[in-house]
Design a protein around this nucleic acid. Structure first.
Length: 903
RNA sequence: GGGUUUGUAGCUCAGUUGGUUAGAGCGUCUCGUUUACACCGAGAAGGUCAGAGGUUCGACUCCUCUCAAACCCACCA
């Protein structure tokens, strides 16, 4: 390989696409094609990005981490599968397409009709999937495209239907009237995560309600309040508990029952409260506990119902005012707090205030005892698998968050009144002959028979099944499923479930789930629920949660702040490897990462450094060939670099196994730049004849770097002559194995070499401090005591690196007059340059040194005079401190001598 | 209201079972002989590890409290 063929600067954009093509064409992304015998499998299901458009830097983050892990495991010899895909993201996508159509044609989805609308959505999704695939490739992802899935493809739809039918049959999915988040504008239920909170100030009203005063921000819901709750320990109301009291209320006199329950806080307001079971989650549960009637005061359109008497038909805001006025005229207003601040829940799509209301929807029963779980519920099972570490969570602190969320989980509402998504596999028809139907279908209890969901459907007959039932007149439920229902199946539906496939057997449970902590509940927890029930397996053995990518100042990236880092743009500018590296170094699990372009530029600089290290080696070695066995070292530097490499391999492997990517990366970075490039390469120029070691170290470095920066390492690898072996991709090379522990001989080598480094650095420092021209060759005298042999052996290296013309190494010192002096690891170093010395400056420099050493000696002496320290500290610590003390005392003496010789 | 996290050099962050004279990258300053690399090299400056107590022979590391910042959950009683 000649000089001309290797450019001085690595240009990622010229080579990345073609390297990716090579990888893809090799077929090695697919575990079935991997070379060698691979008994162990390792799999990751890629969190499917929403098929709504482009990927952001957060996606780049997870792609980088997952690809790193997959490449590492592949090199370790595992059968590795990283399965990519996209999510249909029901509500998010539907909203986006609705907006697009509105902007383009001015039409609503109802103008287009269900069929035409879904056609438009499909077109949009196909387009954005292509964009996403391209972006994932640009990052260098070694995922198996042949197994790519989409949450709405036919296979997954089959899985979704199967899951629904099975859970329904087992009584875990039911249709019922329960309280849900309802968006009156979208006309749909909303998942908890689709509800956002906005702080707002609103009047808070206090009303006289019989003997108590109650507070509310929502007078318009109070028509149905017929129960007073007080705390059981509240002495004020002790006598009232259990009584039925006459109360004058909005529409006239009513009777209110008094119940004691600890939910009522004595200190809050009057300590008594009334409840509105139809429009509050908490009240709904209380009503269930005490079997209280649940009245619907507000309907799906956000208007008051017949229950409100003359107020019926009014919208919420108007009614609030009118109810207040009425109560005021009745003299029932106690007072109004105008400065009440609370969080209003609004729809994340349209900002409309969300109305909690009771509606007939499909639910998953999370609290129902399940036979095969020994009477445990879905929720309890999901808690248990984390508690007994069948699923490990990294970092561990998120376990607590997970427990807390699950413990408070309510039945999961899975039906949505939108068009885009998996249609609920339930069919209804009016019963013609009551006696002859119902076979074949699994009618689901009394409640379903009384549905009021859609008046146009007469649901005497209900059929639940993956395919439409035979016969005339069946109509499918118009609703679709919550998008998390299908994503909950992701780890196994993508592997072919419900079929019993080979992939399922090989790759499930998956090895690792790597995702952001922000979707721990919505996704991770739901996958665990679904998998433990349907598969009788955990979905994954480990969960690694990464943080959010923020801007340099820790702010979220957003259009309005104009601080968005677009992955494609920075890849174009700095290369994919640099982007990857900047997303890995200095990042710890579960913590947010502040990213600035300067950090990516820094990573780019390193990659160029690695390129040039390789360039130099490939240019200067006679035959840049593959060196597979550890070459024999000839000099101290050779021993040192090989030993350091051994240490590095073991360190990196340990860190990667513990998911400490940053520490692993930093270790290789430090080795590459500060050891290999800064010292060994320079020494190789002096000593010469090191082709085999240079190549050997380089090749191992490329392997260690490959999971981090796959493109540049693969590129360099391609320039190495395979030495008779068939040309292989670095991607499937085996990971450098550490076969043995680092020996004490190796430790000694490292120490000796460090001594040489210190001598060189000290001389360089003396030169710089005294402004001695770098080109000027100096003479140096080193008083080395017992180290005289090492220094003598290394004198050529020292002379060259420290720019010395002559070097005299002595056992015992003569102190030449008029010389610069310093200590390096206890060795005395003298530069006789009397003509250039500024004596005053030297004296003050050495005086500073004396003070520093003296202070340290005092510190050590105090420590060693402390009886308790001597009694209780471990022996090796004490010995170490003692040694330090001796060394420093010795050094002090030497510096004082040097000072004396100056004067 | 409940909970979690963070607070270490000008900036962004490492520091995994308590024992270093506390580290890196970027930035800053000084100087560039040596053709792998100026996306570079050599050298330097810069920190009472938020604050106060406590445990310990010993605390950046463990405990308590205070202050500051971020986030999550609950909350329209």
């Amino acid at each position: 390989m000649s000089n001309q063929e290797i450019p001085k600067v690595y240009e990622p954009k010229n080579v990345e696409d073609s390297i990716y093509k090579k990888w893809e064409e090799s077929g090695f992304f697919n575990p079935d094609n991997l070379p060698g015998h691979r008994p162990k499998a390792f799999s990751i299901a890629m969190p499917p990005p929403n098929a709504t458009g482009v990927l952001h830097i957060g996606h780049a983050e997870f792609i980088t981490i997952q690809d790193l892990v997959i490449r590492y495991q592949r090199m370790l010899g595992k059968k590795t599968l990283w399965l990519p895909g996209t999510d249909h993201a029901a509500i998010a996508t539907q909203t986006k397409v609705e907006k697009l159509i509105k902007a383009k044609d001015g039409k609503s989805r109802h103008d287009l009709g269900r069929e035409e609308f879904l056609k438009r959505v499909k077109t949009f999704v196909v387009e954005s999937q292509n964009t996403i695939r391209n972006q994932i490739r640009k990052m260098g992802s070694s995922c198996d495209w042949s197994r790519e899935r989409y949450t709405l493809d036919s296979g997954l739809t089959k899985a979704v239907n199967e899951a629904f039918v099975r859970m329904h049959k087992d009584g875990l999915i039911y249709r019922g009237n329960r309280i849900v988040n309802w968006c009156p504008r979208c006309q749909s239920t909303l998942a908890d995560d689709e509800v956002e909170y906005r702080e707002q100030k609103a009047p808070f009203y206090y009303f006289k309600y019989g003997p108590v005063v109650i507070g509310t921000a929502r007078p318009e819901t109070k028509f149905g309040d017929k129960v007073i709750i007080v705390h059981p320990d509240d002495k004020r109301y002790k006598d009232l508990v259990g009584q039925e009291l006459p109360v004058e209320w909005i529409l006239g006199p009513i009777t209110a029952k008094v119940i004691a329950d600890p939910v009522a806080e004595m200190d809050l307001g009057s300590g008594a409260m009334t409840i509105t079971p139809g429009h509050s989650f908490v009240d709904f549960e209380l009503a269930q506990k005490y079997h209280l009637p649940i009245e619907k005061i507000i309907n799906e359109k956000g208007e008051l119902t017949q229950v409100a008497g003359s107020f019926a038909g009014l919208d919420v805001a108007t009614a609030r005012h009118k109810v207040f006025e009425l109560l005021k005229s009745k003299g029932l207003v106690d007072h109004v707090d105008e400065n009440y601040v609370h969080n209003l829940s609004v729809c994340y799509r349209c900002d409309t205030p969300v109305e909690p209301l009771v509606s007939e929807q499909w639910f998953i029963a999370v609290n129902k005892p399940i036979k095969k779980f020994g009477g445990k519920s879905l929720k309890e099972r999901a808690l248990a698998v984390v508690k007994d570490s069948q699923v490990e969570i990294v970092p561990e602190r998120f376990k607590k968050v997970y427990y807390h969320w699950l413990e408070n989980l309510r039945d999961w509402c899975i039906s949505r009144q939108i068009w885009f998504g998996h249609r609920i596999p339930v069919y209804y028809r009016k019963r013609e002959n009551p006696k002859s139907s119902a076979k074949g279908g699994s009618a689901s209890g009394g409640k379903t028979q009384n549905s009021k969901l859609d008046k146009s459907l007469t649901e005497d007959e209900v059929y639940v099944g993956s395919t439409p039932p035979a016969g005339e007149g069946w109509q499918q439920d118009p609703d679709t499923l919550d998008t998390w229902f299908s994503s909950g199946l992701w780890t196994f539906s993508t592997l072919g479930w419900p079929e019993k496939t080979k992939d399922l057997k090989t790759f499930h449970p998956t090895s690792l789930m790597e995702t952001g902590y922000d979707i721990l509940f919505f996704w991770v927890a739901r996958m665990i629920i679904m998998s433990t029930y349907l598969m009788d397996q955990v979905p994954f053995q480990q969960v690694y949660l990464h943080g959010l990518v923020r801007d340099e100042q820790g702010r979220k990236m957003s259009k309005s702040l104009d601080n968005i880092i677009d992955p494609l743009e920075v890849i174009k500018k700095f290369g994919a490897d640099a982007v990857r590296l900047s997303l890995l170094i200095g990042v710890t699990p579960g913590n947010d990462l502040n990213l600035a372009e300067s950090k990516i530029a820094g990573a780019r600089n390193f990659i160029n450094k690695l390129w040039n290290i390789s360039r130099y080696i490939l240019m200067t070695t006679k035959k840049p060939e593959l060196i597979e066995t550890r070459p024999k070292p000839k000099t101290l530097a050779d021993q040192w670099i090989l030993d350091e490499l051994t240490v590095l391999q073991s360190t990196v492997t340990t860190h990667l196994d513990a998911y400490q990517f940053s520490m692993a990366g930093e270790a290789i970075y430090e080795f590459s730049w500060s050891k290999f490039a800064d010292w060994y390469l320079e020494i190789a120029k002096i000593e010469g004849g090191k082709d085999d070691i240079l190549l050997y170290v380089l090749q191992n470095l490329l392997k260690l770097w490959h999971p981090f920066t796959p493109f540049v390492t693969e590129r360099i690898w391609a320039m190495i002559d395979p030495n008779g072996k068939p040309k292989a991709l670095l991607m499937v090379e085996s990971w450098p194995q550490v076969s043995r522990q680092v020996s004490s001989r190796e430790t000694k080598v490292v120490k000796d070499f460090n001594l040489v480094q210190q001598v060189v650095s000290t001389i360089r420092n003396l030169r710089a401090e005294s402004n001695i021209a770098p080109g000027k060759l100096l003479t140096a005298i080193i008083v080395a005591g017992p180290k005289v042999k090492i220094i003598k052996d290394q004198s050529e290296v020292i002379k060259s690196l420290a720019r010395l013309g002559e070097l005299e190494v002595l056992v015992k010192g003569k102190k030449p007059a008029g010389s610069l002096s310093a200590l390096a690891a206890g060795l005395e170093i003298y530069l006789p340059v009397s003509d250039m010395i500024d004596i005053g400056k030297e004296v003050s420099r050495l005086n500073l040194e004396v003070k520093r050493v003296k202070d340290f000696i005092i510190h050590l002496e105090n420590k060693l005079q402390n009886q308790k320290f001597l009694e209780r500290a471990p022996k090796n610590i004490i010995a170490n401190e003692q040694k330090k003390l001796e060394e420093n005392k010795e050094n002090l003496g030497k510096i004082q001598q040097q000072l004396k010789s100056l004067k």
